[in-house]
């Protein structure tokens, strides 16, 4: 077997592993139950809650990620390396641990003060926002920074000599040029937030009709040995997730090069 054939075979092996896993869901597929589960108030609530929280968390993440990514991409400042390293945190420690850290924080005096005088995070929908935000913002910054690194600083310098302030150069040159990268990063951030489980269940709990997102609903069904219901919810999650990734593929395929 040639090296080329071996490499291609490996990619098919991985594809088959995922394919078999997805197909196995249909072993427990029951048309009647699928419709019942999908149409149930609890499932629809989970879908609505997941879509809503993932969207809000993505907006907050991207809001912080765009300026942060720009700063890390363009400027050299004290603490830059430290910030860059901290961004890896959601990737190197498990979301449950991250959620546990947040819970521990809310048991310290500053955390108690925030909970009492500010916003209640623990066991609330705000907790879901927070959980999804802390697990996605680092990735959002990484992805947007990569898009901005691709854009030569020279375009901003040209804009400056044509009368644009640094902020105007950012909004009229850098943002339009990194638009496709930002959109792709936002979609991936959204997909990651949608599937977030560990930090969410730790901070917001698993209260039905209150903080039960789709991943939490899957966990709850599985815990009560409801295999059919679990399969239905997993299929819903896969459909939404793959739909989103297909959108990203379309976007990145159409992305043009920025060499003027």
């Amino acid at each position: 077997m040639t090296f080329k054939k071996l490499a291609i075979s490996m990619s098919f092996v991985v594809f088959i592993v995922y394919g078999v896993l997805i197909l196995s869901l249909f072993y427990f597929y029951n048309g009647q139950l699928f419709l019942e589960t999908l149409a149930s108030e609890r499932t629809l609530f989970s879908i609505r809650l997941s879509l809503f929280t993932a969207t809000v968390a993505t907006l907050i993440s991207v809001f912080f990620a765009i300026p942060s990514a720009y700063a890390l991409s363009r400027f050299r400042f004290p603490g830059r390396q430290l910030i860059d390293t901290i961004l890896e945190l959601p990737m190197i420690i498990s979301p449950v641990a991250l959620g546990a850290v947040v819970l521990i924080f809310f048991n310290t005096p500053p955390g108690v003060f925030v909970q009492e005088k500010g916003v209640q995070f623990v066991f609330t929908i705000c907790g879901i926002f927070l959980a999804q935000f802390i697990t996605t913002v680092g990735i959002a910054i990484r992805l947007i920074k990569a898009a901005m690194d691709e854009i030569p600083v020279r375009y901003e310098e040209v804009a400056r000599t044509l009368g644009a302030s640094p902020a105007k150069a950012f909004f009229t040159v850098t943002i339009p040029l990194s638009k496709k990268g930002i959109i792709a990063a936002s979609i991936l951030t959204w997909a990651k937030a949608l599937g977030e489980f560990g930090a969410t269940i730790t901070i917001a709990g698993s209260m039905a009709m209150k903080t039960e997102t789709i991943p939490i609903a899957i966990f709850m069904r599985l815990a009560s040995a409801d295999i059919e219901g679990t399969a239905v919810l997993v299929l819903i999650l896969i459909t939404i997730g793959l739909g989103i990734l297909y959108g990203v593929r379309l976007l990145t395929r159409k992305a043009s090069s920025f060499t003027g």
């Binding site: 040209v158 644009a164 040159v173 003027g260």
Partner: peptide, 20 residues
């Protein structure tokens, strides 16, 4: 005086026309 207030046009060697 920052660059955007100097009123100096600059033709860079790599031109850097805005691709968008």
């Amino acid at each position: 005086t920052p660059p955007h207030k100097r009123g100096v046009g600059y033709l860079f060697q790599d031109l850097a026309l805005f691709p968008h």
